[in-house]
């Protein structure tokens, strides 16, 4: 019996990638890499990068789960931040060219890998964990379904950094403005009925930079791969801050 192996029809696209090797390069540069992708099948941007890495083995990028859960492969794809593993090539590509750069505003360690220290330093400031003052109950701290519902759209953040690195206020003041990701987490714990440190959390945010540098540009909302809304969270904190002063 004759069996034929179906051959895929391929087309060539250009992947223009940001390159920087601290051991060799004084300046970053863009490198064009030609790759062959299937015509009748859509790939993710991460797949395209893996194909490019087969040719340019030194090309570096972070990746782990490959399905939008771990948040490792945040990068700037044709001008818009996103996770390479869940961004379809067909949506991202313009013409026959795909431009991939590191997330803006953070120091580049190598190629598409950025140093996320600034991002996590800001996250640390909002104390992203439950703070309680009462003695721990014998079993769990209970929450009604309505109280739990308030955390929807907040707890899903995977800390990929796409939002904060797409925020102009974070670009200009990465050390003073906490950024959308950290502020979303801040609201996640302020809104949590079990948390008992609301006043302290609000005190920490009550200065000219930490929160009030948000100008409602909403690029954070535009790029969030999980469809979350940090602008709304920031607005909720702002309302809390204003109301407690009345």
């Amino acid at each position: 019996m004759n069996s034929t192996i179906p051959t895929e029809e391929l087309r060539s696209i250009t992947l223009s990638v940001y390159r920087f090797d601290p051991g060799k390069d004084k300046k970053a540069y863009m490198q064009d890499i030609e790759i062959e992708v299937p015509v009748n099948k859509d790939l993710m941007v991460l797949d395209a990068l893996v194909l490019a890495k087969k040719q340019e083995t030194s090309l570096s990028f972070r990746r782990s789960c490959g399905e939008g859960v771990c948040g490792s492969d945040g990068m700037n794809i044709n001008g818009k931040n996103g996770l390479a593993c869940v961004t379809p090539l067909s949506e991202a590509i313009k013409g026959e060219k795909l431009v991939v750069k590191p997330m803006p505003g953070l120091p580049v360690v190598r190629d598409l890998i950025v140093d996320m220290k600034q991002f996590f330093d800001q996250l640390e400031k909002v104390k992203p964990y439950l703070i309680t003052k009462d003695e721990a109950p014998e079993q769990e701290r209970k929450q009604s379904p309505e109280e739990r519902e308030k955390l929807d759209g907040l707890y899903e953040c995977i800390l990929c950094g796409c939002c904060s690195t797409a925020c102009p206020s974070f670009w200009w003041n990465p050390d003073k403005f906490l950024g959308p990701a950290a502020l979303l987490q801040s609201w996640r714990f302020i809104a949590d009925s079990r948390d008992q440190a609301t006043e302290e959390r609000l005190d920490d945010l009550d200065d000219a930079f930490s929160l009030y540098r948000c100008h409602g540009i909403m690029n954070c909302v535009s790029v969030c791969p999980k469809g979350l809304n940090p602008t709304e969270a920031i607005s909720n904190i702002r309302k809390k801050l204003i109301n407690r002063k009345k």
Binding site: K80, P104, L106, V108, G216, S222
Partner: peptide, 24 residues
Amino acid sequence: KDNRPVYLNLLAIDLPIIGISSIL
């Protein structure tokens, strides 16, 4: 001194109309 490059090309980064309005 940190000599690492930082990618920040305002003309190549997409911003929603709200962002462009805010800058203007």
